[in-house]
């Protein structure tokens, strides 16, 4: 029971077993680890969070948070975890200070007692502490929510999509805060739809349809994926996508930002092979470039594989 989080074959269904939200999930999170959950909407991330914070009871399987069973010892767990739901859920008609005070007192502590833990974050919103939470900007709301989740010095922090709908600058700041919290040995479980954020985690779990597809560090995740990948760009991108998908050498091709990523069906496909094929089709401004796959590419590949297995 040394790990901060120990999840064993967790199953959760809704509507009397009709919808499977989590299908046999198992993983461990070490103390002080920043663990990311990546997956599309409906992958089961929020359900997992709600189970681990004792808001739901699993159909089967067990999970231990900080060594406590999520079903039996839920009272103990509630004392130890900080939870920041995906939706802003603090009192909008109370001020920043009142919200923070309220949550501190509910946990039988005070702002002063754990001030050093939240100081870095709180100083940024302190000038507005008399302002009601409902009137704050998105980024400030997130900071306040994080403060409230931290005020009782939790050993594990659960953050459900904390940066969704937050501007890029605030997002960056938010992740820097998480790094500082990690230094204080707080275990953090965070879910995010943003791939660039995934790279900032110690380890990431890719989730889809209630299953975990892979768990590894970002570097390792990339290393496990040894595929040749081309970025192709030209005028008439939609036609290009269709043509590439129809090409005999294509395993998979998908739109990725300003170019299409082409995954060859065989490893020895050269850039000129692609060029020759496309030249016949009269493309202008054609650019082909071999690239190293990013996390998103890995994720796309795993998702594809995952849905093939499900089907």
């Amino acid at each position: 029971m040394d790990s901060a989080l120990h999840v064993n074959q967790l199953v959760m269904t809704y509507g009397k077993g009709k919808v499977t939200a989590l299908n046999d999930i198992s993983f461990d999170v070490e103390r002080g680890e920043l663990f990311g959950l990546i997956g599309p909407d409906g992958a089961g991330k929020t359900t997992l969070f709600r189970l681990l914070t004792s808001l739901l009871i699993p159909d089967s399987g067990t999970a231990h948070v900080d060594g406590f069973d999520i079903v039996k010892d839920y009272k103990e767990i509630r004392r130890r975890v900080g939870y920041m739901p995906g939706r802003f859920s603090l009192y909008q008609d109370l001020t920043i200070e009142e919200n923070l005070n309220f949550f501190a007192r509910v946990f039988k502590t005070t702002i002063e007692e754990n001030y050093d833990l939240i100081r870095d974050i709180y100083v940024q919103i302190e000038p507005f502490k008399k302002r009601r939470a409902g009137k704050l900007s998105g980024g400030m709301k997130q900071k306040l929510a994080l403060c409230c989740a931290l005020i009782h010095k939790p050993s594990i922090l659960f953050l459900d999509e904390p940066t969704t709908g937050v501007d890029p600058v605030s997002r960056k700041e938010f992740w820097e805060m998480l790094k500082r919290l990690k230094e204080r040995q707080i275990t953090i479980l965070v879910s995010t739809p943003y791939m660039d954020e995934a790279a900032l985690c110690d380890r990431i779990a890719l989730m889809q349809s209630g299953k975990i597809l892979s768990i590894a560090s970002p570097v390792q995740t990339l290393a496990n994926y040894e595929h040749l990948l081309y970025a192709v760009r030209a005028d008439g991108m939609y036609r290009l996508l269709n043509d590439l998908r129809a090409a005999p050498f294509t395993e998979r091709c998908y739109a990725f930002g300003e170019s299409h990523h082409l995954l060859p069906a065989y490893p020895n496909l050269s850039e000129s092979d692609v060029r020759n094929y496309l030249d016949e089709k009269n493309y202008t401004n054609l650019e082909i470039e071999q690239i190293t796959p990013g996390i998103e590419d890995v994720f796309m590949a795993l998702l594809e594989k995952g849905s093939e297995e499900v089907a």
Partner: peptide, 13 residues
């Protein structure tokens, strides 16, 4: 509806 009950429910209240 606002979701504040969620936040309350994870406290030892």
């Amino acid at each position: 509806e606002i979701g504040t009950i969620e936040q309350i429910n994870v406290t030892p209240i």
